[in-house]
């Protein structure tokens, strides 16, 4: 028969491999009388019940957040890593130069960059393909980007009914990055250098460039306009 007193920890110094280590020895059970143990046991049960009742009686203690209802007020931290996005400048021109550093930094080949020979530059981005279904959100792509052209956003509602819809084309147009485009004063020439790309246009019909483990589809799934994100970039012919 025994009972423990939590405050009954004792500090001492022990040696381990010749070095002194300050330790705190946890409380052990002390020998006590039967009745005292019984009374203490009963008291401990009652104090536990008092604690839980305290929470029951305090509605302010509720921590549940009603998720779909609180969408309007739900704010994830700005650094939250849920969805990869390409950054665009104020003209709607992408910053990505298709240098493939992110592709190389990605630990599990979730990023695939397709390039094409361009009119304004030798090599330009055709499709920036991001596979959400294999992404581990390790942030290596964002960190490795020397042009600060990528970011992770807190958009976390990823659920779809067809997992092929988890393969995104992140760029809105195939063409050179902002730096190259802005050197070209002629608006018409700029527009001609850009060819629109939609979110699901790329890896779903695959355009001949196969991603590992993704087979070409016979039927192209209907792209959900709500998931297309922003409107096409200005200067891009519709």
């Amino acid at each position: 028969m025994a009972r423990v007193n939590f405050k009954d920890t004792r500090k001492e110094t022990r040696t381990l491999a010749g070095k002194p280590v300050p330790v705190v020895v946890t409380a052990r059970f002390a020998r006590r009388g039967r009745l005292a143990v019984f009374a203490d046991g009963l008291k401990s049960l009652l104090s536990g019940m008092r604690l839980t009742f305290g929470y029951l009686a305090r509605p302010s203690a509720i921590v549940t957040r009603q998720y779909p209802e609180n969408r309007a007020t739900l704010k994830l931290p700005e650094r939250f890593r849920a969805r990869l996005r390409l950054k665009f400048d104020e003209h709607g021109y992408q910053l990505c130069t298709a240098c493939r550093l992110c592709e190389r930094a990605c630990p599990n080949a979730s990023i695939r960059i397709l390039t094409r020979p361009g009119t304004l530059s030798k090599n330009e981005l055709d499709r920036y393909i991001w596979r959400l279904d294999s992404c581990v959100f390790c942030n290596a792509c964002v960190q490795s980007c020397p042009f600060d052209a990528l970011e992770m956003t807190g958009e976390f509602e990823h659920a779809v009914f067809d997992r092929r819809l988890l393969i995104f084309t992140l760029n809105r147009y195939a063409g050179p990055p902002a730096g190259v485009l802005l050197k070209e004063p002629d608006e018409a020439k700029r527009a001609a250098a850009m060819e629109p790309r939609d979110v699901y246009g790329g890896p779903v019909p695959l355009n001949g460039a196969d991603l590992p483990s993704v087979k070409a589809l016979a039927v192209r799934p209907q792209a959900d306009p709500a998931r297309q994100g922003a409107a096409p970039a200005p200067g891009v012919p519709a």
Binding site: K11, R14, L16, A17, K19, V21, P22, V23, V24, V25, T26, R28
Partner: peptide
């Protein structure tokens, strides 16, 4: 056994912190 790397072979800045190693009896 008070074997805690934070105390025995301090890494990080554990050497600057004052803390005890809890051990059982």
């Amino acid at each position: 056994v008070p074997y805690d790397l934070r105390k025995c072979e301090p890494y990080g800045v554990y050497a600057q912190a004052d803390f005890d190693v809890p051990v059982g009896a």
